[in-house]
Nucleic acid binder design. Structure first.
Lengths: 244, 244
DNA sequence: CGATCAATTGAGTCTCTTCAATACGCGTGG
DNA sequence: CCACGCGTATTGAAGAGACTCAATTGATCG
């Protein structure tokens, strides 16, 4: 189950075995409960087995920005591996199953098996890349594009994780969460989602958003996939993303 | 000269020696010239010896967001070490002296000397943390606070690099660059800087901003230092930052 | 069947943007 | 040394996108 973590890096069997033999404890978390709290020293890194999580930071005035969404197969909190104190929180978006690995075990692994370390390092680099795109999104796009971009990124990452059909392309976020992910107010998010629904791009059911037309959302959201650094086997386009 | 890179990580003499013996070539770049171009495969990682650089990304509509500022003693483009294509550009902000290290040499080093690898990994984690804060800044603060935050971060990092006095606390950015760093227009930046100057927080000379009152800027900008992960020897406050 | 939380709708406001014109600083060349 | 040109900064006025406030609806759950 922890194996599909490293889709993106070449691992030999030895590294793979080392990763597989990491000690862990399984935990289940309810929505909104904290995996990591801002200001805590990090003791564990968790790999998501099932469900979604998100990262967030608060301003001094108590305003929130959601920084990223995490899916099954991803490690959360490798970001704090070598840092003293966590600079942000990680919370469960849905009911969440995680495998908690002691931080020390990961440090030891990456010392003894540089290839596995490089694979994890690579994941943190990809997450930085996503963070940069996120900043561009909230900093330089209008509200429609921000939301469309969020949906597009989610859809493509869902697909990459092999979960698109299974979850029926449903983003389990409330308007308030979407607003905090895009630097908007929930009221404005509501209006824009309504317009998207009217245009047949999405449907809304029970506080979640189901994606219907990825292609058009990608256009509206100025979405391109390069920043996700998804390995390309062949030269073909990624689905739902306009050519370059 | 490359030695001061690793202020934040504990390195034994062996790792230090390995880092010091990395092969490199020295290059000088004029302002605005590219160190890394979006879409290029990364062949080198550069350590800044003198001057400032910045990272940027463009939207499909050609709008720019500046993602970070880099100072002497920092590696740029470790971010692309294990990635196929660069997802952003790095440009010289001022005249720039860099030491270019072949990517392969760094990979080899981090395989053979995990401690040095961890030190570099740590630097990339800190940069992600800065990127997250940057996203919060453009996503959830008003224009005044964004600019004040940018100035505060710059001031503290200058100091950490030991360059505050030497450079007289001067941020060598045009209004347009500040605007692109904060997700604003240069016109609005101009107005706000004028107000800051009127309040005695800064002075402007020749398209650069000199910082006068760090403490007040930090308040206005909702600036706290945790996200920079600057190692604290003693329990004392960082200068120019309000006590938590 | 209230209670509660999320979403919706409308009206008015404000920050920041856009557009346009002008001024300034600085290097170049006459 | 001054005129010219260019990039950057400034200023004003008008407009737009997103926000705030407030009231209403809707869904879910005990």
């Amino acid at each position: 189950m922890v194996e599909r973590l490293e889709l993106r890096s070449r691992l030999d069997s030895e590294s793979r075995a080392a990763l597989m033999s990491l000690p862990y404890t399984r935990r289940t978390l309810e929505p909104d409960s904290y995996l990591v709290r801002e200001g805590d020293p990090p003791h564990y890194c968790s790999a998501i087995l099932d469900g979604f999580a998100f990262r967030q930071r608060l301003t001094g005035e108590g305003r929130r920005l959601i920084l990223s969404i995490h899916m099954p197969g991803e490690f959360v909190d490798l970001e704090n591996l070598y840092l003293e104190l966590s600079d942000h929180s990680v919370q469960a978006l849905t009911r969440l199953e995680v495998a908690c690995v002691p931080r020390r075990a990961i440090e030891t692994l990456s010392n003894e098996c540089p290839q596995a370390g490089a694979a994890m390092w690579t994941q943190t680099l990809i997450e930085s890349s996503i963070a940069r795109e996120w900043a561009v999104n909230v900093g330089r796009r209008d509200a429609r594009a921000r939301i469309a971009h969020l949906l597009s990124e989610f859809a493509l990452r869902l697909e990459t994780a092999g979960l698109g059909e299974a979850l029926r392309w449903t983003l389990p976020m409330t308007h308030e969460q979407i607003a905090d992910a895009c630097g908007l107010t929930p009221i404005h998010v509501s209006r824009i989602l309504k317009a998207f629904a009217g245009d047949g791009l999405i449907v809304r059911d029970r506080g979640a958003v189901r994606i219907l037309d990825r292609r058009r959302l990608a256009e509206i959201g100025d979405f391109t996939a390069r920043y996700l650094h998804i390995p390309q086997r062949d030269g073909s386009d990624l689905p739902g993303v306009p050519a370059h």
